[in-house]
Write a protein that binds this DNA or RNA. Structure first.
Lengths: 352, 352
DNA sequence: CGACTCTGAGACAACGTGGTCTCGACGTCA
DNA sequence: TGACGTCGAGACCACGTTGTCTCAGAGTCG
């Protein structure tokens, strides 16, 4: 029977089911039933329990609950991205979050900064917290360390880059084909000397984009001039420097293909500084905010980030719901968005 | 003693301490000691335990651990922001993550989309997972629902906006003074009709910025013309429409003060469409990527987002380390960044 | 050499919860 | 009316871990 003294609980720490049970005059198990909405509880009893819980400020302990529960699910999912602050990663996080929220699942996030050691360390920390699944944009070249986790029932979905030495679901863009599209677009503008500016060649997507670049040139029966290829550009400043250097060559490129966000922005900055933004064509990989507001607008290969995130999340939850089909890679198409910078023809300044 | 059959564990689920103990021929408690690096364990025994753990692919269960541990800490912190995808929120997340990582603490994140109901719901979900602390950019006007959690020992730090009906630490920018700085800057350019374009007046920071706007005008002995004030602009499109409307007035403003990111970008877009970007001055609140690459560059009041995030995280962990001093609000200064748009003088197009 | 301390490892219980089983009360029907 | 089924609530224990206590064996010292 509920007491009627109205002081708040003075004991430090949090009230437990036992205390609620004591106050309501029932067994802890009955409190458990009420909290979990089991329908066989007498409505009057349930009301008493709820009142007691309310009075004590009781909150169920999901940690204990998931420990005891049969399936051991924690209703949380880990997400490892390159850098939570960059637009691509944060858009991905938000999209996965949207899907997860509908299931009452929370996201644990971590940034890897392209560091394979951190990938392993953070993945393990997440696993030690028994997340139900992991969404990973991998930094390393070997995910075999996750095999035992996969066997133990942790759902794994890779995003942007496929897992290595591990058979798991992945959701990626068609990097090679998209790079070919970009370079073809520049070739159609009459360009014959097209530079490639990209980040670490060790990143598989970067490698695929470079592969597309060389392939497109070969198809056009053009040589790949090593002098026009600059890789390993990690910072905006590196991209700026590289752009200056290739444009200072005796026979400079008339167009640039940039393999990634940060590089694109750096190149764009360099072109502006040199006053060449209307004379040198540029197509970048990855869209970014305000790309349309620059003059000229920056033409890009846009990935379907929301689609990628949504499908990744859906794939993950399908696995958690018991889908046993063999792991598969979903390849999403990209889109060439023409805004001006990519439509500058050889020898003709943009009319913008 | 370790066995030497080398098959991987076939049992479904994850190996536990007991199984490691069994394989190593020790008591579970000894495994616990080894895992936790207790130094009193015989090195040879510890090595045997580690080998057994390795062979089984054992990973400690932090869920169970934190349940049993005296302090009940989970080494995780919840973070509720407006929208994980927006640059301000994602920068904040990343900064807090950096501090948290040094302590091996993980971040659980949630987006509120300015929905007070979601704030409460997500805060409770995080509490049910027994996060050690919460970093919140609040959406609602009442955080008293957190009082019991605060009493129960959950550390709380509010960011960007102070808590209401709750006494807790906060880290904010000086919104009112910064708005005055912005408006003064426009007044110094000779402007007398300055529009205010802002988002929901119900958001405390927006209200403070508006307050600064009116105050600056009053100090200059100028009237606040209601026709030049547009609030509740939540989307970029709303900002575009509002900009068009105020500029279509019989006596249009010659300068705009925009209270927030999305609004600033919308206004900037509208000015461009109208061809007025070099004639109408603009200062925005909150910096954003590429603001310097537009023509003219967008002058802004920049918050010290990294400072805010870092101090918020440090304050949180100081509380978790036992700091009992009364809750305090840390106010961080902002910085006016002049890039062109705010330096357009009345009646003179920018020379940019 | 016996009583002492000290050290390292194990036995035991408990953290907060939910699965399982039990049991009393009640209703039903022959 | 008595045997049986049903149903709601509690007793009991286990989930994986660690705090506490115990204890065997080694070391120490008068």
């Amino acid at each position: 029977m509920p007491q009627d003294n109205s002081e708040p609980p003075k004991r430090p720490g949090r009230p437990t089911m036992r205390e609620v049970a004591l106050l309501a005059g029932v067994a802890p198990k009955t409190v458990s039933r009420v909290v979990n909405g089991v329908s066989t509880v007498d409505p009057a009893l349930a009301a008493r329990v709820r009142a007691a819980a309310e009075r004590l400020g009781y909150r169920p302990n999901l940690t204990a609950s998931s420990l005891r529960r049969g399936d051991g699910r924690t209703a949380s999912v880990g997400m490892l991205v390159e850098d939570a602050a960059n637009p691509y990663s944060s858009a991905l996080i938000r999209t996965v979050e949207n899907v997860a929220r509908q299931r009452g699942v929370l996201l644990l996030i971590g940034s890897l900064d392209e560091d394979p050691a951190r990938e392993r360390a953070l993945a393990h920390t997440l696993i030690d917290r028994r997340v139900d699944g992991l969404v990973i944009v991998p930094s390393g070249r070997d995910q075999s360390y996750l095999i035992s986790e996969q066997n133990a029932g942790t759902a794994l979905v890779f995003v942007d880059r496929e897992p290595k030495l591990l058979d798991a679901d992945a959701v990626v863009s068609d990097n090679r084909a998209s790079a070919i599209t970009a370079v073809d677009h520049l070739l159609a503008g009459g360009h014959r000397r097209i530079a490639y500016l990209g980040d670490l060649a060790s990143i598989s997507t970067a490698a695929q984009r470079y592969d597309g670049y060389t392939h497109a040139l070969e198809l056009a029966q053009l040589p790949v001039d090593e002098a026009l290829v600059r890789q390993g550009l990690v910072t905006e400043q590196a991209a700026i420097d590289a752009t200056r250097e290739v444009l200072a060559l005796p026979d400079p490129p008339t167009a640039l293909f940039t393999s990634q966000n940060v590089v694109t922005i750096g190149c764009s900055r360099a072109l502006r500084e040199l006053g060449l933004q209307d004379r040198v064509a540029m197509v970048g990989f990855d869209d970014f905010p305000l790309a349309d507001m620059l003059r000229p607008g920056i033409s890009v290969i846009a990935q379907d980030v929301e689609g990628i995130g949504r499908i990744a999340a859906e794939t993950l939850f399908r696995r958690l719901d018991g889908d046993q089909s063999p792991p598969a890679t979903t390849v999403l198409p990209t889109r060439l968005i023409t805004r001006g910078s990519g439509e500058i023809r050889r020898g003709e300044p943009s009319g913008d």
